[in-house]
Amino acid sequence: MSEDQVRICVVGDELVAGLGDARGLGWVGRVTARTRTETPMLVAPLAVPDETSTALAARWETECARRFGRHTTNRLVVGLGATDLREGLSLARSRLNLANILDAARSARIECFVVGPPPRPDVDPDALGSLSQAFADVSSRRQVPYVETFAPLRTHDQWHADVAAGDGTHPGQAGYGLLAWLVLHNGWHEWLGVAQD
């Protein structure tokens, strides 16, 4: 196996799988399609619907270890959702869970990139804003890139219209396009060390 190959595991909830996207791409597929690398890049979305950060922290290493190689450049993208709020996890617990993921990855020399939770109509927006800020703080303290999706989309008409047109909770093509745009324009290419299209 080439030591130049990049393997990226993307862990998170159903948003990582693109639930609701008629094209089946989600934000992960759209970001991958817009990423040009000189070396082969394998992107493995590893989604579990309605997953809390506690469950995510418990599974990511085992799942990613099966995709990472001993002689490849291994990277981790953490796509966070709003399930912690719906399941009643405290802000402190959510912070600790993300911190544990990032710290364990750093110990294994795996570079991380974090995508925060976008707005959802079934959770309190102020609480979700606070959760996103907490995740951003944990990431910042560890010098890990964090993409804020809640604040830019909180009052975005196209986002809310796209969610309403689907199942009322998850975005469709337009919404995933917005998430992909935010990722691509908030440090993605710099994190990978590649040129932007």
Rank of each mutant, 00 (worst) to 15 (best):
P49W: 04
L42R: 10
S130D: 15
L42V: 06
T73H: 11
W188D: 03
Q173P: 02
S53L: 10
T149G: 00
D197F: 11
A174T: 14
N100C: 07
R75G: 01
D167T: 00
A136P: 00
G81L: 01
E111D: 14
R106V: 06
P118F: 08
G24W: 11
L96Y: 04
D167N: 14
A174L: 14
A82W: 14
E14W: 09
G175R: 01
G81H: 06
T149W: 07
W191V: 07
Q5H: 06
W181R: 15
P45V: 02
R59W: 04
P125L: 12
G29A: 12
G12F: 07
A136T: 05
C112V: 04
A65L: 13
H185M: 06
P171I: 03
L89I: 08
E3H: 00
L25S: 07
H71Y: 11
H170I: 02
T52W: 02
L102C: 11
D162Y: 02
R30C: 08
H170Q: 05
N97K: 08
V163E: 00
L19K: 04
V28R: 02
G69I: 07
L182R: 00
A195T: 03
R30D: 05
V144R: 02
S130R: 15
S130I: 04
W27I: 10
Q173S: 12
S53C: 10
N74A: 07
V43Y: 11
G69N: 10
V183R: 00
C64V: 04
D137V: 05
C9H: 03
G20P: 07
F135V: 13
R7E: 14
D122E: 12
G168W: 09
G81P: 01
N186E: 02
L98S: 03
G172I: 11
G20W: 00
P117N: 13
V43Q: 07
C64I: 01
A17L: 08
R142Y: 04
R106Q: 15
V48C: 11
L89V: 04
E51D: 13
F150I: 08
L19M: 12
Q133R: 15
R141K: 00
M41G: 05
R36A: 09
N186Y: 06
D4V: 06
L96F: 11
E190C: 03
H71W: 09
R86H: 13
E14N: 12
C64T: 09
A47F: 05
R34D: 14
H71G: 00
P117H: 11
G26P: 07
A99F: 05
T169W: 10
V43M: 09
D50K: 12
L182N: 03
R106G: 11
A151H: 05
T155I: 09
A104W: 05
A65K: 08
E51Y: 06
W27L: 13
P49A: 09
G177Q: 13
G88F: 02
R75N: 09
Q158I: 10
I8D: 07
C9S: 12
L102M: 10
A104I: 01
L153F: 04
A104D: 13
W60E: 13
G175D: 08
E61L: 06
P121R: 09
G129Y: 01
A55I: 03
E148Y: 02
G29E: 13
A92I: 01
T52D: 08
A164D: 13
T72N: 12
A164M: 08
T32S: 12
G175W: 03
L15I: 15
P145W: 03
S107R: 14
H185G: 02
E14C: 10
